[in-house]
Design a protein around this nucleic acid. Sequence first.
DNA 1: TAGTGTAGAGAACGTTCGTTCTCGTGCCAA
DNA 2: TTGGCACGAGAACGAACGTTCTCTACACTA
Lengths: 186, 186
Amino acid sequence: MDQEEARSRVLDAAERLFYDRGIQAVGMDELRTAAGVSLKRLYQCFPSKNELVEAYLQRRDARWRSELAEYVAEHAGAPEDRPLALFDWLHTWFAAPGFRGCAFINSFGELGPTSDGVACVARDHKLALHAYVTELVQGLKVGDPAGLAGQLVLLVDGAITTAALTGDPEAARNARTAAATLLAAR
Amino acid sequence: MDQEEARSRVLDAAERLFYDRGIQAVGMDELRTAAGVSLKRLYQCFPSKNELVEAYLQRRDARWRSELAEYVAEHAGAPEDRPLALFDWLHTWFAAPGFRGCAFINSFGELGPTSDGVACVARDHKLALHAYVTELVQGLKVGDPAGLAGQLVLLVDGAITTAALTGDPEAARNARTAAATLLAAR
DNA sequence: TAGTGTAGAGAACGTTCGTTCTCGTGCCAA
DNA sequence: TTGGCACGAGAACGAACGTTCTCTACACTA
């Protein structure tokens, strides 16, 4: 087995297990079994659990945002529909099996005070999301794109945590309605 | 020392330590030292760490909501100011030293998949918040109070997580502005 | 005063976990 | 063929943690 393939198998297993059950609830041994690599190999790819955790979060960040952007690009026709398409995507995500909230908020709650790396990745993820939404809003002629984007991101984060806690995907619909109101009042 | 006082000293220490550093990062031994009670006493009050965690969350829920309600009752004159006062309170909370986000979201991220009790307390906290905001909104004549309250709660949760991740209390101001827009458009 | 129960301090126990070490096996170059 | 090398499997190690046990001191009662 290639080193590169081992690495991606470990990251796949990490993403599945860490996201499902929390980071501290998953041991390196279980991870090794799930990934189907040897412990030696695992530590060759990631010299410590901390580095694996950060790599997991970074890869998830990239994939999450690219999936979101892809959906919005595909499903939104007019520029003014694009921010709302974001909330449609949220709904499909919330309703997907295994949804358990935002990996970054969860990790931050679990390890934020202990690990600067985790706190940093989580913060960067939210900043990148804000930048993306600002981009979406910039097309519409609005006085303060970053401000409006900030408000929309609040709705996004609120919807994610509400859906995670209650298990009800309808939080996305609620957020979409609120977002439409904010956009109409701009 | 009274049993009742031991209990409250343990809960005080638990609230401080669990909230600051996460639940799994704090051991029973450190808790005992911080509370100034013996290990035997600690286990007399709370037969297991799980029960202590749930008691901590329940007490924090009660206090958090009563402090919020007290602030709103004091600082809001007209009924239509009351939902906005909520966001003013958030700002003072975010700016307070030691703010580290929502204890329930954090605990849910850390222990939600493992402990049904924690997941339940977190869910109940959010439901109670929603009920309270619905009450606030009910005074204004609006078609769907629960729906509008749901949207406002999204802003609340979004603001809390954003403030926690970025460390910037301004998220409360942003949320307040958005809330005002939603209220004006009702 | 002798006896009894209770509490505090902390040692001890069993488990889990991150990380490292050992051993046996197969592969490749000289 | 042979010597070394890399790898997989899993044992081993040291630390941390939740929980229980032991020992000592002291208060209270008959």
